[in-house]
Design a protein around this nucleic acid. Structure first.
Length: 400
RNA sequence: GCAGGGGUGGUCGAGUGGUUAAUGGCACCGGGCUGUAAACCCGGCGGGUUCACACCCUACGUAGGUUCGAAUCCUACCCCCUGCA
């Protein structure tokens, strides 16, 4: 038996197996399984990757190794007590693989009309029933302990993408202070056994506890980004995320920030770009040094009738597909593309059949995850540059 | 046959003398969606010319009529629904 004593005691294992330029291929070891990176993580905000069954997420054509849940949403409903009583989020939803929970920081942005920020935390007017709720770094980490995800996120403030320097600085500094508080409360909760998802000691050579990621903010201002990174690293986390992108800024700005920040992030820790992105964003940002991604696009756009294909986006509602016997993407090996035609999917969508969004979501997810498999392969074989060029050419060639 | 009610743009349905090419809904056509307040949101939707402003044509069962002006009023006819025979 090979000894893994050198990683025992840590909650998360991480090793890079290949590099190609800034792109890295690696293995992220969590208490609920190993995850090859770069990885795309499907979003399951409310405890469900919308429209996709867990069996399908596990199936070979998709094979998601880790999915997200959301602290704010699960906190409001069904509530952390319910989920703790059911043995944590894994057992509650019936998913045995890895989970990552976002802290609710994104809702500070997306629900900006319903909240007020103070040093202490964020007062939300619940979007469900209007009642006043208070989320802070401490509360967020307490809820995340009750959910018991394998990776949890520090509670941050996510400002709009185009905020000016002064506002971005104030926000970034608040996030930095919240990072310390998140770290402190996290450690207390772990020491106190509050983690509902704890696994046996030595699982995978890991401690069995949760791991915690810090989040870099600073909007489009590179000096603030660098400072935010330094202050986050100073606190010390198991992994580091870039937050506050794809929130209204120009795409070039996003790429510029990632290009500046990712290579400066600790090389011995996984790098997670939050909320990104399109297939081309994934490839571009892997090329800038990112290891982990999540995004609602495959499921949301799938539900709304848009398929991501190797030749770009295909809107299944378009009349031009009405009698098209071809699959969504002739190059896609997913279960949906192997079985169903564009004509059938369009018919289902136009008829309002719930199977249509289900099938397109499945295809999109399978497509995103397949892209990441090919990205990893390209990095390992030292052909990432060529892969990137050919992939982008394909995406831009247009669906016929 | 008699008595009521009704025939409006792809469809259902408002409008009952003048901003009416005609409110809405649906259908249809197109666009958007990036740590999910999203199975959602936005736009178009009689025809023609125009990049556009704009202009022309055709339209409220059919045919006449009244009026400066009619989907709206009058007459005849056709058709549909309900009740009674």
């Amino acid at each position: 038996m090979e000894s893994r004593t050198q990683t025992t005691g840590q909650a998360l294992g991480w090793e890079v197996s290949a590099r190609d330029g800034e792109a890295r291929a690696g293995l992220l070891r969590t208490r609920r399984g190993a995850i090859e990176t770069p990885v795309f993580m499907p979003v399951g905000t409310l405890g469900s990757v919308k429209g996709v069954r867990f069996e399908e997420l596990e199936a070979a054509d998709t094979d998601a190794r880790i999915i997200l849940g959301n602290t704010y949403h699960l906190w409001l409903r069904p509530g952390p007590e319910v989920i703790r009583a059911c043995g944590g989020l894994h057992r509650f939803v019936g998913w045995g693989r890895a989970l990552l929970t976002d802290s609710g920081g994104f809702q500070v942005f997306s629900l900006s009309d319903l909240r007020r920020i103070s040093e202490e935390g964020v007062e939300f007017r619940s979007h469900l029933d209007g009642r006043l709720c208070f989320l802070s770094p401490e509360v967020s980490l307490e809820v995340q302990a009750a959910l018991g995800a394998d990776i949890v996120m520090a509670f941050d403030e996510c400002p709009p993408g185009e905020v000016g320097h002064a506002e971005a600085r104030a926000s970034m500094e608040l996030t930095a202070r919240w990072a310390r508080r998140s770290r402190r409360r996290f450690d207390e909760l772990q020491a106190g056994g509050a983690d509902a998802g704890r696994t046996d000691e030595d699982t995978e050579g890991l401690s069995g506890g949760q791991s915690l990621f810090g989040i870099v903010q600073g909007a489009a201002h590179l000096d603030l980004r660098r400072e935010s990174l330094a202050r986050t690293v100073e606190v010390g986390f198991d992994g580091y995320a870039i937050g506050g992108l794809s929130v209204g800024e120009e795409k070039a700005v996003m790429y510029a920030v990632v290009e500046e920040v990712a290579p400066l992030m600790p090389a011995e820790r996984p790098r997670y770009l939050m909320g990104v992105g399109t297939p081309e964003d994934l490839v571009e940002c892997v090329g800038r040094g990112v290891d982990m991604f999540d995004c609602v696009l495959p499921t949301r756009n799938g539900r709304n009738g848009q398929a991501f294909t190797s030749r770009g986006r295909l809107n299944i509602k378009n009349a031009r597909w009405a009698a098209d016997p071809r699959p969504l993407d002739e190059a896609c090996p997913c279960a949906v593309c192997r079985r169903h035609s564009r004509a059938y999917l369009r018919h289902l969508f136009m008829a309002g059949e719930m199977l249509a969004p289900v099938l397109i979501s499945h295809h999109n997810l399978a497509s995103f995850l397949d892209t990441m498999r090919r990205v990893r392969q390209a990095i390992r074989s030292g052909e990432f540059t060529r892969f990137r060029r050919e992939f982008l050419e394909g995406i831009n060639s247009g669906v016929e």
